[in-house]
């Protein structure tokens, strides 16, 4: 079994405007991923775009891998052009997974961060309290499914088109104050949101795991391009690789 394989594109369909869901079927036996791990997907046939792009495993079942992605720039535009039947190069699963929650936990996500947390919710059905924010109703992808997997779910949007209008982190604070005092927090989303989640968890003495994003070249720990500033036992700080020591970090390790 190899961490570098070819996979057949089974489907590559729009999940919403500017979001697609790609389903891949590895042509050789592939390793089983854990929630929070990611894959590097080929970004096209030519050398432009050149580098593979990292995506969290959204779902894994019966040998097929699914990724939920937002079309942003050259790489994701190229990936969005893959057709059913295409064979693409894939590397993974990579990186550290979320630590297995021991009972109930809070899951906080903004936007396409749901891609990383979804399989954690699935694996721990009924144990999560979900806080899910997006720009608008259309971008609350897999809202109903995620709600069903959770014991409780709160949704927020920037424009109030679904759930409550406001910030997902405000909802989280409110909930912790009332009833969430002993649950760990798992979060994936934009960096400013994660910084806030980490601060809230710290104030309330809660364990907090965050999944970080950085630009990556190799995804396997060789280029040192994807680092984040982290606490270090030697010196004031050190750099840790998001692709190897992460993408999931204990929020306490990160120098926000």
């Amino acid at each position: 079994m190899h961490r570098h394989f070819k996979a057949k594109v089974v489907d590559n369909n729009f999940a919403a405007e500017a979001f697609k869901l790609i389903t891949l079927s590895p042509v050789s036996e592939a390793l089983v991923p854990l929630p929070g791990q990611f894959y590097m997907l080929e970004s096209g046939r030519s050398t432009d775009p050149l580098l593979k792009r990292p995506f969290s495993v959204f779902r894994f079942n019966e040998g097929s891998l699914q990724f939920l992605y937002r079309i942003r720039g050259r790489g994701t535009t190229s990936i969005a052009g893959f057709n059913k039947g295409d064979l693409i190069n894939v590397v993974g699963p990579l990186g550290k997974a979320y630590p297995e929650p021991d009972g109930r936990f809070m899951a906080v996500t903004g936007g396409v961060g749901i891609a990383s947390l979804y399989s954690l919710l699935e694996r721990n059905r009924g144990n999560s309290v979900l806080f899910y924010g997006a720009r608008n109703a259309a971008e609350l992808l897999y809202r109903e499914e995620a709600e069903k997997l959770s014991a409780k779910a709160f949704f927020t949007t920037d424009d109030g088109s679904a759930g409550e209008q406001g910030l997902v982190t405000d909802k989280l604070s409110e909930f912790i104050k009332n009833e969430g005092k002993s649950m760990p927090v798992y979060a994936c989303g934009p960096h400013p949101m994660l910084r806030k989640v980490a601060a809230i968890a710290k104030q309330n003495n809660l364990k907090c795991y965050v999944s970080l994003e950085e630009h990556m070249a190799c995804g396997i720990g060789a280029c040192l391009g994807c680092v984040v500033k982290a606490k270090s036992s030697v010196g004031d700080y050190g750099y840790k690789r998001v692709c190897k020591e992460g993408p999931v970090f204990d929020a306490d390790e990160v120098l926000w």
Partner: peptide, 19 residues
Amino acid sequence: TGNPTPRIVETPSGMLNAI
């Protein structure tokens, strides 16, 4: 410890690095 981030950026058929 190396440089602050971002350290890499993709360019046409290449990449820039400042590790």
